[in-house]
Nucleic acid binder design. Structure first.
Lengths: 207, 207
DNA sequence: ATACAATGTGTGCACCGTTCACATTAGGCG
DNA sequence: CGCCTAATGTGAACGGTGCACACATTGTAT
């Protein structure tokens, strides 16, 4: 049974490393997330983590995977079973709030392309993607689910990132929430399901 | 006059560093962007760049500022004087295309919060932000310019990032462009100012 | 010509990721 | 119980990095 004691063997070094990594992330940002610092905080030699993570990237990917699961927790907490467009709006607000609550983690999650090598991370992102798609499918049954869910995700994701870059007014959580609600609402108003009208696509964009 | 010769003084080390940094960025991604590597490529000692950049962050910020200006170039090239909503759509496509053409640069540009310390970078982003706002103001004269331009930017920015993370279908530039056009068009359709008929997007998203 | 400021060099330090040989221990098997 | 092996943690070592420091070189103004 794994348990953290002071004997030669740590007991559950992997979990301790992940915990230390998350703490460092919140304290010093992604810059302070070094393997050696993680090992120090876990009270273990510098090379011990290599028994549980192939390299630094693997550690970071595991942290990111945890972040994805925690983000999923935020979303489901915002609305356990979203079915109406307004429910989706609440979920969108939660998405942005997660980014503002855990900026360093959010950056780590989207810092590098989701390398197909780390299956834990790939799986976590796939779950999230399917979750969004599922909500959209439920809320807009006969819409182009793929296109709409992509657009919604992009809009919310972009809002989160612009907030993280300090380019938007994030003075109070309510201001942020209102902004997100307004933006998502604007998009839904345009949804072909809501306003049933179909026409030819627009012109082309230049070089 | 600054010129790159082989004498003791380089001539224009600052520019050479920026050029080397951009090359390294395109070759090895942001991981390969080290001050020492930049110095090596510029044919200069490891500490020479410190005469022109306070630290590594300053160098990266300058590179990012160049990226902002180049992005602005992409946008204006897409449409020199956008006035109609469709013009804005073309600009949006250019934005995403820039991200896909220069992924490492795009990541550097938005990797860290735009620190108010580096005025060069702040100014470049401000210019960009004002540019977007200006377009929206021109295209939707009596709309809530701030809200709409923020929403548009967020949507496009999010699309770019999701593409960079490989979460969208970017098999061909045309697919990407169609997606962007559909998403932006959907948003504009919702704008109370736009009086044209609603059009249904026909884009599709990949796995 | 000389003094000064700007610019580039070299050394050194602390830290980092990673590898390797080695030490310690847990758990299965007799 | 004792032993053997695989799992796990240690320590030294290598090359790389950012950065501070003293020093060398050079353009430029006086």
């Amino acid at each position: 049974m794994p348990q953290a004691n002071d004997s030669y063997h740590h007991g559950d070094l992997r979990a301790a490393c992940l915990r230390a990594a998350r703490e460092l992330l919140e304290e010093d940002g992604s810059a302070g997330l070094s393997l050696r610092a993680v090992a120090r905080r876990a009270g273990v030699s510098a090379t011990a983590p290599y028994r549980h993570f192939a390299d630094r990237d693997a550690l970071v990917s595991s942290v990111a995977a945890e972040g994805y699961r925690e983000l999923a927790g935020y979303l489901t907490a915002a609305h356990p079973a979203p079915a109406m467009p307004d429910d989706l709006t609440a979920v969108a607000v939660a998405y942005v709030r997660f980014a503002l609550d855990h900026p360093a983690m959010f950056r780590v999650m989207f810092a590098e392309p989701c390398d197909p090598g780390n299956e834990e991370r790939v799986e976590a992102t796939t779950v999230l993607s399917e979750y969004v798609r599922g909500i959209v499918r439920g809320a807009f049954s006969d819409a182009d689910v793929d296109a709409l869910s992509t657009t919604v995700w992009a809009l919310v994701h972009g809002l989160a990132f612009l907030h993280l870059d300090g380019k938007l007014d994030a003075s109070t959580p309510e201001v942020v929430a209102d902004q997100v609600r307004a933006a998502v609402h604007a998009l839904f108003t345009a949804s072909p399901v809501v306003s049933q009208a179909a026409t030819a696509p627009s012109g082309r964009a230049g070089a």
